[in-house]
Write a protein that binds this DNA or RNA. Structure first.
Lengths: 232, 232
DNA sequence: CGATCGGTTGATCGGTCTCAATGCAGGTGG
DNA sequence: CCACCTGCATTGAGACCGATCAACCGATCG
């Protein structure tokens, strides 16, 4: 029975039964971690990779003045640190947002997987490329779109990714992001996030109630946000 | 005699003489292309990788309303499309900024290199990680810094990267970026770029004269921009 | 010589920030 | 069981950064 990680990789590259069992074995050393625990701190050397098998987390960079930019969020199946070639210093921090079951993989195991399983190697390349692509999209979003569209785009992205892992039903999903978190993803203020959220509700693009957001008409939201479907 | 590409990869991973010669052979099919020619168009399938051996280029995404976000710029030694696992659609366009000598590498050659030269494979991973890291930094820059610091940061980055390839002397470098280009990197307007450029000169952080920019005191600029040295 | 392109400057507008107050819910301790 | 505290969402008023629009300049090039 493939876990979320295997399922994700299979979306990019076809894997054999052997590949799958290798991956499952490699991610069998799991651990449940509490919300808001640091999986990784910017500047640390990273001697383990980790895979989120359930729960949410996000990655962020800090400025010296205390500003924070969230550069990515992780949903079940996502991983980080799989690719460190040499043991370099992390260039962002990672913290969990909810309780997460995460699998830790040692550098040696990764090297072994890469060396002997070409399809797995490809799959990991693919996932790294996906991350790069996602960063390009975020940069464009933050750099070019006005705040309402920017938030709308983010919500499109969230819905797509959560749908891909079966965590959204009928355009509705639940994620414990605070308005400050949204703000730090989008490069705006939490106050402004609040106003925009209200505004998007007012023009009937979405509903939100505490931690659950429901997109009424995904096509209309996509259109509003100029969201181009990505290959999740 | 290693070319710019080999020199770049060697900054990340130690290569043997054989690795180097393989790489040189793989990048021997070069071509000189004129400024402002498209190497790749967003949405196209990419059947070649290319390596910039001399000259500058940049990568950008377009919005449907015509806005443009430059997501990366390429200096000699940089490459793109090396990693395409399956032949996917490009998620940004690439155009040359100056005359460039670029080497085209076929998918087969890449696969062959990767399969038989583990150090080269590592080096390419490393360079992909570098790109990811650079995107994170850009996202943080655009998302969190006010415009003057944002521009200052970009100039720090430019100087670092150009120094790394020997294209800067005494904090001075030459690059044919128009103010509109700077603007599209930073997510601001060309008019505002102009004013900020003036402002940074006024407070003696830099000089610029047509296409050459000279940083008077790199440490002071770094400090102003909150620039953390990266591993180029 | 006129045309074009990019840089410069000014005036004004508006989106987003800042600061501050208020509300609201959950958790804790008396 | 209530009083308080804390964290987060909300709302308003005012300020400011950066956008917009428009004019002008200077260089380059046919």
């Amino acid at each position: 029975m493939p876990n979320a990680f295997v399922r994700k990789l299979q979306r990019g590259v076809e894997l054999t039964a052997i590949d799958r069992s290798r991956l499952i074995e490699a991610t069998s050393r799991t651990q449940v971690v509490a919300p808001y625990t640091n999986l990784l701190r910017e500047g640390d050397v990273q001697d383990n990779a980790y895979v989120i098998l359930s729960g949410f987390a996000y990655c962020f960079k800090l400025l010296t003045n205390g500003e924070r930019q969230i550069v990515a969020y992780l949903v079940p199946g996502d991983a980080d640190g799989l690719y460190g070639v040499t043991t370099e210093n992390a260039d962002y921090s990672v913290v969990t947002l909810t309780p997460c079951t995460v699998a830790f993989i040692s550098r040696d195991t990764i090297d072994d997987l890469l060396a002997h399983n070409p399809r797995i190697a490809r799959a990991l390349w693919w996932s790294l490329l996906l991350e790069k692509s996602s960063l390009c999209a975020s940069l464009t979003n933050v750099g070019q779109r006005p705040a309402p569209q920017r938030l709308a785009y983010l919500l499109c992205d969230l819905l797509s990714r959560l749908q891909a892992v079966g965590l959204a039903r009928n355009g509705s999903f639940e994620i414990p992001l605070k308005q400050q978190d949204f703000a730090d993803i989008l490069g705006i203020t939490s106050v402004h996030t609040c106003r925009i959220l209200k505004y998007l509700q007012k023009i009937d693009l979405l509903l939100h109630d505490y931690r659950t957001i429901t997109i009424v008409d995904f096509d209309r939201l996509k259109n509003y946000a100029d969201f181009s479907p990505t290959a999740y």
